[in-house]
Amino acid sequence: MNLSLLAGAILNGLVTGMLYALMGIGLSLILGLLNIPNFAHGVLYALGAYVMVSGTKAFGFVGGALAALVAVAVLGAVIETLGVRRLSRVHPDYTLLLTFGLSLILTESIILVWGPVGITSQPPALLAGSVDLGVTLYPKYRLVVMVVTAVLVLASYLFVTRTRYGAIIRAGIEDKDMAAALGINIRRVFTVTFAAGAGLAALGGALMTPVRGLLPTMGLDILPFAFVVVVLGGLGSLPGAILAGLLVGVVQSLMTAIWPPGADASVFVLMTLGIIARPQGLLGQR
């Protein structure tokens, strides 16, 4: 493999890796705090992409991305309040069933609203084309997406680790009953976390539209990888999810360059070996 190909593969891996990290953070927080394997996380990502495409027509590129973020975060809050909350006292398997049902409903709704045919979208004119990085040519838009997602990932991490509200979320993950006993309105923290996770997924979907295009089932394509990232990184560990996201993205991308058919399989081999060797995940504590 020559250097330019290697550089291209690693850059591609970092772009997808950042997306996985963004999805993983939301999924991990929801899993850690609410104890829900959110099966609908993929379709929320898809919904973000679709809202983006419609929003861009009305409000421009940045406006479209914000519309996707807000709309899907609000939907996330609604799902938490009307659905997930009702199931807080029963076995988490029911929330799995609920989120599976929601994912079917939302996927079909996308088809009803936007049609079953895929949509392609172009990056904004300012970011079209590619730049010469010396070792390889690389699309401008992808570089920008990489930076923006990296900033989002970092900001989420700092929010959870450095702010007061973040401390409350972490307290909730550690011990819900104790947090509630200390007078924290834990229900509202749940709603905010679910909404934030949904919003991050939607933003990921929105930013990726010019890179991956749109298809109603795009959520199912990415969901298994988001779960792999969460588990490989360690349940509830944000740095773990970020590291695992990048690792999965780069491994997948390098495998694409070396032996394409094995790209997806290598991710699952990685995860299985990871769980066997480090049961608590890469950076997980428990």
Binding site: L31, P37, P224, F227, V228, V231, L235, G262, D264, A265, F268, V269, M271, T272, I275, I276, P279
Partner: peptide, 23 residues
Amino acid sequence: VCIQRVGTYFIMLTFGFNQMLYF
């Protein structure tokens, strides 16, 4: 291999092996 872990890790191990055999 799978029963060495519990909860979400168990689920994901069974899923991971499924994906490998599918491949």
